[in-house]
Nucleic acid binder design. Structure first.
Lengths: 205, 205
DNA sequence: GTGTTTACCGAACATTCGGTCAGTTAAACA
DNA sequence: TGTTTAACTGACCGAATGTTCGGTAAACAC
């Protein structure tokens, strides 16, 4: 599942007796953040969703902003891995671009709530600005990929690479706004439709 | 400019003596909402941006939520006009779809701050839920357009119309996240690139 | 000059915010 | 069995929230 970034794995993984732990608090918190927005969510909202009082949350995590920071890191780590993969570095740029698009859709759906949160960050705190900085690096990375593909003559003439980058990954990011794994097509199918629409064209040849 | 939805135009348009009016408060407020997020913006933030105290704002507008409501209506009205145009109702569906995409980009850029706000609404209040309902109608409208185009055989086989709708207008909506009219390509150029990328395909034929 | 309107300030309001802390409960361990 | 300790409660804190209200000074109408 690739979602287990478990903060601290006990050497014996003894069965937790009950109640919550940092991981369960995080996953519930991120779900509520995505429903109401981070700023629109109070610790009281989180407590209600967890079935405990506000103060119980502070037994598991340091505070609201740390919950956000951990969630954003989880999204950014997934995307960074992808960008560091050798399949994003070897071969014709247009093929690498296609691979990155497909993998981005995969990571986005695998870590949907975390990536959704990342895509909505506005920069209101140091935590958010740090996440935006990491995100900007990733955007620059794909920007270069499109430029390379254009330089290699693989992209339809007259299309500005910077514009293509934004529109293409704008479409990728928009998936976070509607995709529900239990209801919608599998991630690979969504990625396939996106690639065909943007690489080969919507219009019947 | 098409942005003047002036709430109340004085019959003589006498030169406002000084200070703010509902219109100037709204435009500043929307700018701050987009910077910090609606929930992340306090009335104190707005007051600072306007150069007045908090209480002065209430002389011009009824409150924070009304500012949001007015802004969202401004976005929704622009998009509704577009959907009601006869050019969205006559001719081959694929051509109507292309027209709607181009016009959506036009409205989005003309009313950028208002549409940006609309695209970020989460449904936290009755005001927001009402806006989401109107937005859903518009989305259903373009959904039908894509279905028609598919039924007319104008769309590449194997592409699910519902998926195409979401990805296509996801790309349109993403423009709101980066487009700065003074820095970026004109709206028509952006629309052109988007249509070419998605209708004809990114990849060189 | 008088009276009215417009734009605004400053102080307060009730409420909610994120967060703290001293205790209580009960399961796990020795 | 007794001790430890993780999980949690309830009362509370100071600060910030959106909003109200009485007053004020400048611009306008007459």
């Amino acid at each position: 599942m690739a979602l287990d970034v478990s903060a601290s794995s006990d050497r014996s993984t003894r069965p937790r007796r009950r109640g919550h732990d940092p991981e369960s608090v995080l996953s519930v918190a991120v779900a509520v953040f995505n429903e109401r927005g981070y700023d629109g969510t109070s610790m009281e909202d989180l407590a209600r969703a967890l079935g405990v009082t506000k103060s119980a949350i502070y037994h598991h995590v340091p505070g609201k902003e740390q919950l956000l920071a951990r969630a954003l890191d989880r999204a950014l780590d997934g995307l960074s891995e992808l960008a560091a993969d050798e399949r994003a570095a070897r071969g014709p740029a247009i093929d690498r671009l296609e691979w990155v698009v497909r993998q981005s859709v995969r990571v986005l759906t695998e870590r949907l709530p975390y990536v959704t949160l990342l895509l909505r960050v506005r920069g209101n705190s140091a935590t958010e600005r740090a996440a935006l900085a990491r995100r900007a690096e990733l955007e620059a990375f794909v920007g270069h990929l499109v430029e390379e593909a254009a330089a290699e003559g693989a992209i339809r003439p007259g299309l500005d690479p910077a514009l293509v980058t934004r529109l293409l990954f704008g479409a990728v990011g928009s998936i976070a706004e509607w995709h529900r794994p239990e209801r919608d097509a599998p991630a690979a199918d969504v990625a396939d439709a996106l690639v065909r629409m943007t690489f080969d064209g919507l219009r019947r040849a």
